[in-house]
């Protein structure tokens, strides 16, 4: 299996150094993304999903820092690449859609210009060629009247349209991997579906893999091939979508998925009782310990559980399953 990976993240840790102390936001997370795959990452607010995606693009700013781990992309470790080389990968091979597209577009620049300059940077096109390509990419993502809209500023677009512009911009160079951080949050259901369709279409036509970060388990079920469940800076379970929804193993995943009567019904993750534990001084052992109904005293608080493969491709990180 490992011969056919697009992205291989191993034991990635990212800390934030704040006045209260060190915040261990990502604690040795590992996951793999295959070519042409939609890989989902779900978890409560504050579990570190955005930090994970920013880490892949090396966009963590002080006081944050990636402290260890490896991120192999097409065989090279992104964390070891010099800044210059890495810039060539960003936007061309890996790109990212942000949680709030409105704020992720430069408010003082016409959107045509914003897209065109990506073509100029990565493909060395001339001004007019780049602008044509920009119009083309807007059309590709179904922005009506693309020729006119290139002259508009971001604030003139509705949220859904702005999200499309963002996708058009980030898909400009047909990247191998698109990281989408909650691309549909705040959109109405119809628009949400349209945006997801656009992304799936890009996957089917261009073969772009997608790392889809979401709150919405319904969206995850409909869109993803495989899913990782994140809790307080740990990835606690990874499996194919059907497997995970059919037979969740980790108590957190269970709580999460059992709270959904039907897969297509929307339930927000935050409906689970209790809080994500403080990432500042996280419990030494399992980080789910305060909320877990099945704590094994004497074990769970002592050590962090190992990630184990229960079935082919079904990983779980929980003491309940150790030694099985």
């Amino acid at each position: 299996m490992s011969e056919n990976l697009l992205l291989n993240v191993t034991k990635l840790s990212t800390n934030f150094y704040l006045y209260e102390g060190v915040m261990r936001v990502l604690d040795e997370i590992s996951f793999q993304i295959r070519p042409r795959e939609v890989f989902g990452l779900v978890g409560e607010s504050g579990s570190g999903k955005t930090v994970a995606s920013l880490s892949i693009l090396r966009l963590i700013l002080p006081p944050g820092r990636i402290i260890s781990g490896e991120i192999f992309f097409e065989g090279t470790d992104l964390l070891k690449l010099p800044q210059k080389e890495f810039s060539k990968i960003r936007g061309k091979k890996i790109s990212m859609i942000f949680q709030q597209s409105r704020t992720a577009l430069n408010p003082f620049m016409k959107i045509g210009e914003q897209i065109a300059r990506i073509y100029r940077t990565h493909e060395g096109l001339s001004k007019s060629e780049a602008m044509e390509k920009a119009i083309e990419s807007l059309k590709r993502f179904r922005i009506p009247e693309a020729e006119k809209r290139v002259e508009s500023y971001p604030h003139e677009f509705s949220l859904g349209m702005a999200q499309r512009v963002m996708i058009a911009m980030m898909m400009a160079c047909n990247p191998k991997l698109l990281i989408a951080d909650e691309p549909t949050t705040g959109l109405d259901v119809t628009t949400q579906a349209q945006i997801l369709d656009l992304m799936k279409e890009a996957r089917d036509k261009i073969g772009t893999s997608i790392l889809l970060i979401t709150h919405d388990l319904g969206v995850a079920a409909q869109t993803c091939d495989r899913l990782a469940v994140m809790h307080a800076g740990h990835i606690v379970e990874i499996a194919d979508v059907e497997v995970l929804y059919g037979r969740p193993l980790h108590p957190y995943a269970k709580a999460l998925l059992n709270s959904i009567p039907r897969v297509d019904k929307k339930v927000r993750i935050s409906d689970i009782p209790g809080f994500v534990p403080s990432l500042l001084n996280p419990p030494k052992g399992c980080r789910f310990i305060n909320r877990c109904p099945k704590v094994i005293l004497g074990v769970c608080e002592k050590a962090k559980p190992e990630m184990i493969e229960i079935d082919r491709g079904h990983f779980v990180m929980c003491h309940l399953y150790e030694g099985k």
Binding site: S45, V276, P277, L280
Partner: peptide
């Protein structure tokens, strides 16, 4: 900042 609201430790 909205960062504040995101930490779910203790509201």
């Amino acid at each position: 900042m909205d960062r504040e609201n995101k930490t779910l430790t203790v509201p």
